[in-house]
Write a protein that binds this DNA or RNA. Structure first.
Length: 589
DNA sequence: GCCGTTTTCGGCCCGACTGTTTTCAGTCG
């Protein structure tokens, strides 16, 4: 952050959103240390919003100046000015001042379970602790227990928190890889005699791509029994807290799970409350206040404290004058206003897909034969699929050359004849053609034109300049044989940043050339991501949702692609592979 | 520091659990 100037010239290092979000997050913690009441919330809200934004803050600033920044929710003049300073200088004087006053590794220390701003501050002021190593040492030397507000048991708790932090490197969990675990726990909860109703709430219910913890909710007259069951499940590694209405455990897989228990008449209110998001709920509570009500996890209450709604979520929204808002939309991204004016989208449903246009077989890097994958697709309820194995230059995946592709085409036609006769599913011929560094494709046009479906994708040179990368994708999209741009931004969640591209340009060319943009449903890709899906739809671009299946078991990935599309406000009509086969084929280039 | 069906000033969601207290502060979601 200090690489400010070089021979007096300003070097722009282009801070990424997550770095800017981190600065704002740390300012929030510093403000809380100072005892500020409301500033921390303002900074935290801004940090969360910017951290979740797909488009670079720098790009927004370049396009619309400080005014565009101030139009973002939760960003006023003051924070906007700080953003401009960060964008222009890669530094922020205000932040650096705070850092000088209390020079500690704030992000790390405060991410240790049980450590908040006040404790970090006290530990620095009394014991000079600035990082996790010094904290651990002080505890081992029994110096922490002497401080007011700490004791032997807090020392042990912090030590456990440090241990966990070191193991988990503070990561979030990819929903598609862990949702099964939760559904399994939920089934067991539901089977208990003492449980009337149980649901998974939280960000998992909102189908966020990654989650920090899981929130279970149950209604019961015998909460103690349910809590005993929950805290003694075989997968529990550690019990954080155990109370009558709330318990938190950590599973052996490392993820924290909460269980809340409420009376049956509060189940809907609690479900609404614990589903979040936090910002969505704050807005709902404000609406409740305006109407003279009070909303909490036990229900909606009038002035005389009588419950007027709470058994179902629908009753809460309805009494607030709103239609039901589906969990995937509850992110404070305009859904409440849309609900108020009857403009909520009619989201694509989880059963609406008829086709899947990206599937791999053991001809390249898939695990099963064409016929095995076809049968699995049929079982998943699909009416048509395209086999799209990799092309020749993707050597890591044993890409197919022209000769092999010809052979595969024959095999597909053979299988297709038998399955069609059974009246089941149609297999389209296809390929995932590799986009080379200069934007050309690794198969000739006379080869490509033989396929029913051509998906083009980037698999190398991920860090070209924005201009080069955009030009590269655009050039592939102008190819008359390319129907779909597969996993357009190439991101891998928590592993690889999205390509640096001019997404507006991609959208323009997608529309101009009728090139479909894919939502790849692989749980660690989900590419396009929700926000880009929303922008694609606003620009009237077409999208498809594909499984990118490499295994018979991968068709259930489609659920996560659909949820991502729902989070991007996609309707059935926006997604081309909800069409029956004939209409789908007609809609291609 | 943000924001507007109460508003450009004066509000800002709210309850549960823990540990260290002897009535509550800090943390979490």
């Amino acid at each position: 952050m200090n690489r400010r100037s070089y021979r007096g010239k300003c070097i722009k290092l282009n801070l990424k959103n997550f770095e800017i979000a981190r600065v704002l997050h740390e300012i929030a913690i510093y403000e809380e240390m100072k005892g500020e009441m409301f500033k921390p919330r303002a900074y935290e809200k801004a940090a969360l919003y910017i951290g979740s934004l797909a488009e670079d803050v720098g790009t927004i600033y370049k396009k619309g100046g400080i005014k565009a920044l101030m139009q973002l929710p939760g960003i006023g003049r003051n924070i906007a000015e700080k953003l401009v300073e960060l964008i222009q200088t890669d530094g922020l004087a205000y932040y650096e001042q705070l850092k000088r006053e209390i020079p500690v590794d704030l992000t790390t220390l405060s991410s240790i379970e049980g450590m908040g701003p006040k404790k970090v501050k006290l530990l620095y002021e009394k014991l000079g602790i600035t990082n996790i190593e010094e904290l651990e040492k002080a505890i081992r030397e029994k110096r922490v227990r002497a401080l007011r507000g700490f004791g032997e048991s807090s020392e042990q708790k912090i030590l456990k928190g440090i241990e966990f932090f070191k193991k988990s490197h503070g990561g979030r969990f990819i929903l598609g890889f862990i949702l099964n675990t939760f559904e399994d726990i939920l089934q067991r909860l539901k089977k208990l005699d003492s449980v009337k109703n149980a649901k998974l709430a939280g960000s998992a219910r909102r189908m966020k791509e990654s989650i920090g913890d899981a929130d279970f909710l149950a209604s019961s007259d015998k909460p103690q029994k349910v809590m005993d069951f929950f805290t003694s499940m075989p997968e529990v590694a550690y019990i954080h807290t155990k109370g009558r209405t709330k318990s938190t455990v950590r599973l052996k897989s490392g993820i924290n799970c909460d269980l809340r228990i409420v009376p049956e008449e509060s189940f809907g209110a609690a479900l609404q409350y614990f589903t979040g998001s936090k910002q969505h709920n704050v807005l709902l509570r404000t609406i409740a206040l305006h109407k003279g009500y009070k909303l909490n996890e036990y229900g909606l209450y009038d002035k005389r404290n009588r419950q007027i709604a709470g058994k179902t979520e629908e009753s809460i929204y309805s009494k607030l004058g709103l239609p039901f808002i589906t969990p995937e939309l509850r992110e404070d991204k305009g859904e409440i206003e849309a609900a108020r004016y009857g403009r909520l989208p009619k989201l694509i449903g989880y059963d609406d897909l008829k086709g899947d246009l990206q599937i791999h077989t053991n001809w390249t890097d898939g695990n099963y034969t064409i016929i095995e994958m076809t049968e699995a697709a049929s079982k998943a309820g699909l009416e048509y699929i395209a086999i799209t194995d990799h092309s020749r230059t993707l050597e890591i995946a044993h890409g197919l050359n022209e000769r092999k592709l010809k052979q595969q085409e024959k095999e597909i036609k053979r299988v297709n004849n038998t399955t069609k006769q059974n009246g089941r599913i149609t297999i389209l011929t296809g390929v995932e053609v590799n986009i080379l560094k200069d934007g050309s494709l690794d198969l000739e046009n006379n080869v490509l034109m033989e396929f029913d479906i051509v998906g083009a994708a980037v698999h190398s040179h991920f860090s070209l300049s924005k201009e080069e990368q955009t030009k590269r994708l655009v050039s592939a999209m102008y190819n008359p044989n390319v129907d779909i741009l597969f996993h357009p931004t190439c991101r891998v969640i928590q592993k690889r940043h999205p390509l640096d591209i001019d997404f507006d340009k991609i959208l323009d060319v997608s529309k101009e050339t009728n090139t479909i943009l894919e939502v790849d449903s692989s749980p660690e890709r989900l590419d396009l991501q929700d926000e880009y899906i929303q922008r694609a739809i606003e620009n009237k671009c077409k999208i498809v949702i594909d499984s990118d299946a490499h295994d018979k078991s991968h068709f259930h990935f489609l659920k996560f692609g659909i949820s991502q599309a729902r989070r991007g406000w996609a309707e059935k009509k926006d997604v081309v592979n909800t069409l029956p086969l004939e209409k789908f084929l007609k809609s291609l280039k």
